[in-house]
């Protein structure tokens, strides 16, 4: 498929280009819905489609008014800040507890490793609506429902599997003789951890943290049930907006979120390459 050999028959040539066309169409399907949001968010009218002015590329057809609304309207700013207050704390919890546990899990002798692993991964396996229902019932019993800490705990639980998976994957390539060498040279376990182990597994920890952050930042089902109006997050606001009175400001919010995910994607890719270089593997 890589390149067409010079001896290819006509049929092969046709298929080769047809196949590329099919793939291009699928890529279009994947990416177009996301890209189309961006120009639409600059619409000067309150429409969800391209106005004739926009199609003529008339500057009149474009405006920043939806962005002004997004950044000026408390309906959007309060949820944005709520998201920014919840996600970092939840991420910190997941990363701190998750990294410790991942290090424990990567020891050579761990009793009940499979059962423990299954329990720790379970928040990723169980459908969100079921987690949300269970948390709603249980957190109401213990008085956490509708509180900031309830949402933080719930989001931390949801982010943990990602931290566990990425950090254990990094630890697979970790050379354990390095910690022994450090100990041999007189470093205590804590010092060994921060000076030797941590720098090497840092890419895994950071990408796990990014996964946990995006899980919390993007999560809507659980917060919908566990949170109350005081914890309304950005995705929640978007969800309400989509369900009830859909306003084009949502497109501005979406564009902002797309920019964030592009930044995250690039960061992760850089981290992945660095981690593989550190482990002595070729990139890719």
């Amino acid at each position: 498929m890589a390149a067409l050999p010079p001896y290819a028959s006509t049929g092969q040539k046709i298929w080769h280009y047809a196949y590329r066309a099919i793939c291009a169409a699928i890529f279009f399907f994947l990416i177009a819905p996301i890209l189309v949001i961006i120009p639409l968010s600059f619409n000067a009218e309150n429409f969800f489609t391209f106005t004739p002015e926009m199609l003529r590329l008339d500057p009149e057809g474009y405006s920043l008014k939806h962005y002004r609304d997004f950044f000026g309207n408390p309906d959007w700013q309060v949820p944005l800040w709520n998201s920014l207050k919840i996600a970092p704390v939840a991420t910190f919890l997941s990363v701190a507890l998750g990294t410790l546990a991942a290090i424990g899990l990567s020891q050579p002798h761990v009793p009940f490793r499979r059962a423990i692993m299954a329990t720790l991964i379970s928040p990723m396996i169980v459908p969100l609506i079921i987690s949300a229902a269970g948390m709603y019932f249980f957190y109401s019993r213990i008085g956490l429902q509708g509180t900031y800490w309830g949402v933080v705990l719930a989001h931390a639980a949801l982010g943990i599997p990602f931290v566990i998976i990425t950090v254990t994957a990094t630890l697979v390539g970790f050379d354990r003789s390095l910690t022994r060498a450090a100990a041999n040279l007189g470093a205590g376990p804590v010092r060994t951890f921060f000076k030797v182990q941590m720098p090497l597994i840092l890419p895994g920890v950071v990408s796990g943290g990014l996964f946990a952050f995006i899980t919390s930042f993007d999560e809507v089902v659980v917060v919908l049930f566990v949170g109350s109006a005081g914890q309304k997050t950005l995705p929640w606001q978007m969800f309400t907006g989509l369900r009830e009175q859909i306003s084009p400001t949502i497109l501005a919010a979406a564009t902002v979120l797309i920019s964030i995910s592009v930044v995250l994607l690039v960061t992760l890719e850089v981290l992945r390459r660095r981690s593989e270089r550190l482990r002595g593997m070729s990139p890719g």
């Binding site: 930042f217 993007d218 978007m238 979120l257 994607l265």
Partner: peptide, 13 residues
């Protein structure tokens, strides 16, 4: 990597 809500909004639009 794009937010689920963003993709859902896109399709809604």
């Amino acid at each position: 990597w794009t937010s689920l809500l963003v993709r859902t909004s896109a399709w809604k639009v």
